[in-house]
Design a binder for these strands. Structure first.
Length: 480
RNA sequence: GGCGCCGUAGCCAAGUGGUAAGGCCCGGGACUGCAAAUCCUGUACUCAUCGGUUCGAUUCCGAUCGGCGCCUCCA
């Protein structure tokens, strides 16, 4: 399928078509997690948005190279990983403790991705594997007079970068001088200059560098890894809206300063998630991880669907009521899928409002993809799917859809599932216990022993199986 | 102080200068032994408020009210 996709570019604050690079590929750099703890559902919203973008571009016919970094060296990681180490710990021990923490949470992060059916990135570079790349990038900036060393730290000189502020749309005068200055950044020329390399401090793991032992600043890692794995021209760079400033602004400063030309064509940002009308925070007790939701009996895929049913650039108010609604909506799609997988029951055969199923499906397909191409407008795309479902259900009730028509509907469901990954094809497989119970219930029904029949149905329900009696006397069942 | 976003039915939500998609929930009916699923049907004279532009605005402009974000670590 060849589908044009337009996205809202934070840089220009306008809608722009996605343009692949000269090799036809679309390179996407995605700011990933800092692996020092469980990611929360707000983080996951961003990762779901990135997955949505990727799947949409792939479906639209673009080869995509999807890179997501893992930040495995950072203040909080150091704080949490070093707290039990003695002052006398060696650098090797400090690195070991840091690695133990980040590897543990990286594994847990990947579990979350899998549970949400977020496709694994093509490359997932770790900051600690790219220290030489960062050092080289900083040296490049230094050589151009865009960075300066002070007491073992190195800072980026934004005075030499006239485009600074272009992403966040901040002018330098408008930037409020920071009132709280990081203790290790007191030697900067101006408050807006940001740190590229941090001089070693007691109790921190360090790397050797031309400026002495130290560790990288936060922003430089994305520039170094992005350039290393995607190159000097990147089509799309994503992240949460809170990353626009200063993180992405600083990435632009560093990367373009070093490269001497534009780096990223399009910056795309996902909005935040609120919980029950309030900003998610640990103090409010509304801070959830995917595990928390799982313990509350929430299906991760229902969460995925709830998130993706809303537009990525709009604030999403997460609520358990909303989740329930998403679950019910999913059931409707899945029920329709099962219906299409089965054969049609004899209908009345005539209907004044009869439609042409195949053209109708084509129409829905067109509307769906047009909406997806319009800045990933999932609410509108889903509306197209739901109206089709209503139309085909109504038709099938009266004039049974042919096998060909059912297959066309299924093919469309597969297409949409390539985006939403929420309506699996799995059918209830033969299960001895269920089959035996169904036989017993059939016998009870034949004997008109309704109490017994209902009792058996409850028993089946307790197994997590839902059954439906069909007109022809057969009974079908499915899980959930 | 600077920059920006949002305010559409009980809830979620799309949308366009010409008179309001879709989903969930809820009411009535059909089907069913009862259900489930499905179908039929009913729910915004109205798109925060007040002005303006226009033949005509929910959609453009201005103001007001309300909610939110960034300017500092943060998805």
């Amino acid at each position: 399928m060849h589908l044009p996709v337009s996205l809202f570019n934070t840089l220009t604050r306008g809608m722009e078509p996605v343009r692949p690079g000269e090799d036809g590929q679309v390179r996407i750099y995605n700011c990933g997690p800092t692996v020092y703890n469980f990611v929360h559902i707000g983080n996951l919203r961003t990762f779901l948005f990135q997955d949505l973008l990727r799947r949409t571009l792939v479906a639209s016919g673009h080869p995509v190279r999807f890179c997501m970094n893992l930040t495995d060296v950072e203040d909080k990681i150091i704080r949490d990983s070093q707290k039990d180490l003695p002052e006398s710990a060696t650098n090797v021990e400090r690195h070991g403790a840091m690695k133990a923490l980040t590897e543990r949470f990286t594994a847990l992060f990947l579990e979350d991705l899998d549970a949400l059916r977020i496709l694994r990135p093509d490359v997932m570079p770790k900051a600690t594997d790219h220290i030489p790349h960062m050092i080289a990038l900083i040296q490049k900036l230094e050589a151009k007079g865009l960075a300066y060393a002070r007491e073992g730290s190195v800072y980026c000189r934004i005075a030499g970068l006239p485009q600074y502020g272009c992403l966040a749309h901040l002018d330098r005068e408008g930037m409020r001088a920071g009132t709280s200055v990081d203790s290790d950044e007191y030697e900067r020329d101006t408050v807006n200059d940001f740190v590229l390399w941090k001089a070693a401090k007691a109790g921190e793991p360090t790397w050797e560098s031309p400026w002495g032992p130290g560790r990288p600043g936060w922003h430089i890692e994305c520039s170094a890894m992005g350039i290393e794995h995607l190159g000097e021209r990147v089509e799309i760079h994503t992240g949460g809206v809170d990353l626009i400033f200063p993180h992405h602004e600083n990435e632009i400063a560093q990367s373009e300063g070093a490269l001497g030309h534009p780096w990223v064509a399009s910056w795309v940002h996902g909005e935040f998630l609120m919980v029950e009308g309030e900003k998610m925070s640990k103090s409010l007790g509304n801070f959830f991880t995917l595990r928390d939701l799982h313990e509350k009996g929430v299906d991760p895929i229902a969460f995925r669907f709830a998130i993706q049913s809303n537009h990525y650039r709009k604030l999403y108010n997460f609520s358990f009521e909303g989740l329930k609604g998403a679950e019910n909506a999913l059931k409707r799609i899945r029920a329709f899928r099962r219906r299409m997988e089965g054969e049609g029951e004899a209908g009345g055969g005539a209907w004044k409002e009869a439609l042409q199923p195949l053209p109708r499906i084509e129409e829905a397909r067109h509307t769906f993809w047009k909406a997806m191409g319009d800045d990933l407008n999932t609410p509108e795309a889903l509306a197209a799917l739901f109206t089709l479902i209503t139309d085909l259900n109504a038709q099938d009730d009266r004039i049974a859809l042919s096998r060909e028509e059912r297959d066309a509907a299924l093919a469309f469901l597969d297409e949409t599932n390539a985006i939403f990954a929420a309506w699996p094809t799995e059918v209830g497989s033969a299960d001895g216990e269920v089959e035996a119970l169904l036989a017993a219930r059939k016998a009870a029904k034949a004997a008109k022993d309704w109490a017994e029949a209902d009792r058996i149905r409850d028993q089946i329900k307790a197994l997590g199986i839902v059954i439906e009696d069909r007109k022809d006397g057969t009974t079908v069942w499915h899980r959930g």
